[in-house]
């Protein structure tokens, strides 16, 4: 099975918001992990990246907010734009880029602070300390993360006293506190039980009304449930990218078919 070209549906009837273009390539030192990617991600929809471990989907996700910059020896070729602006624009501070992009991680990682302080962290570091503004952001974010009713009476308790699912939703609330345009989710449910997973998935369904969401997941059912479009990666290449129904019900590519039907490898 060697197909060098990406299978994509011919009609892309949307305005692309995030564009991975110009044959995006990515290396860790001398090891190339992403090959010639071109991908348009629609605004205010959920796009899922699926593929076996090591296929580069997380690397691509972390390229979008330049989280990979923390690693030494990375090289890229090609470009990624968000709303038409290149993330590699030298005039663009990486910090201000990250303020436009919220990120939720695989393992919920609240700060060892109070629930309140977790959410206003991104405001405080930007020097926004006005109490009324912070209060408003906390309520808006927690409501957005469907957590307000559960925690409104204990905002000043430690975030670490919450349950795992609550902590992950707190992390989502923290990610949307700054009103980003894009929400990146790196396997957000892999550490959660099914109930919490369901809540987070419901939340994703709600959040896509306001945010452009990109989610990496190992759980294909999850990708099928929450996403509007799905991209299948294998060995650093984008194999197939289409609306989710097509990817799961009638994929055009044999590798995709094999992967989604569990016959892979």
């Amino acid at each position: 099975m060697s197909q060098e070209t990406t299978t994509t549906s011919q009609k892309e009837d949307f305005e692309p918001f995030i564009q991975i273009k110009d044959d995006y390539n990515f290396w860790y030192g001398s090891a190339q992990v992403l090959f010639d990617l071109n991908l348009n991600i629609p605004k205010k929809q959920v796009t899922a990246f699926i593929g076996p471990s090591g296929c580069g989907k997380s690397t691509l996700l972390r390229s979008i907010n330049r989280m990979n910059d923390l690693i030494e020896g990375i090289v890229h070729k090609g470009d990624i734009t968000i709303g038409g602006q290149s993330i590699y624009d030298p005039a663009l501070e990486v910090i201000s880029l990250r303020k436009r992009i919220g990120m939720v991680f695989q393992k919920y990682n609240p700060f060892p602070k109070s629930i309140y302080e977790n959410i206003v962290f991104s405001l405080r570091i930007a020097g926004r300390n006005r109490r009324s503004e912070l209060d408003e952001v906390v309520e808006r974010s927690l409501r957005g993360a469907a957590l307000w009713d559960e925690v409104k009476d204990r905002l000043h308790e430690s975030a670490l006293s919450m349950s795992g699912g609550q902590m992950q939703r707190l992390c989502i609330a923290r990610a949307i506190a700054n009103s980003p345009e894009v929400l990146l989710m790196d396997e957000p449910c892999s550490a959660l039980d099914p109930i919490a997973t369901g809540k987070v998935e419901e939340l994703i369904h709600e959040l896509k009304k306001e945010y452009t969401i990109v989610i990496v997941t190992h759980n294909m059912q999850q990708a099928a449930r929450v996403s509007d479009r799905t991209a299948f990666f294998y060995l650093g290449k984008l194999i197939e990218y289409d609306i989710t129904d097509t990817i799961f019900m009638n994929p055009k590519n044999d590798q995709t078919e094999a992967y989604v039907s569990g016959r892979f490898g």
Partner: peptide, 27 residues
């Protein structure tokens, strides 16, 4: 200090020094 905590702070738009000062040192 877990990597995830630093990454979370950076993803929130914190600079490296802010991350160290506000998250890593207390932890």
């Amino acid at each position: 200090v877990p990597r995830g905590m630093r990454e979370a702070a950076l993803a929130c738009g914190a600079s490296k020094w802010q991350t160290i000062q506000r998250i890593v040192l207390p932890a």
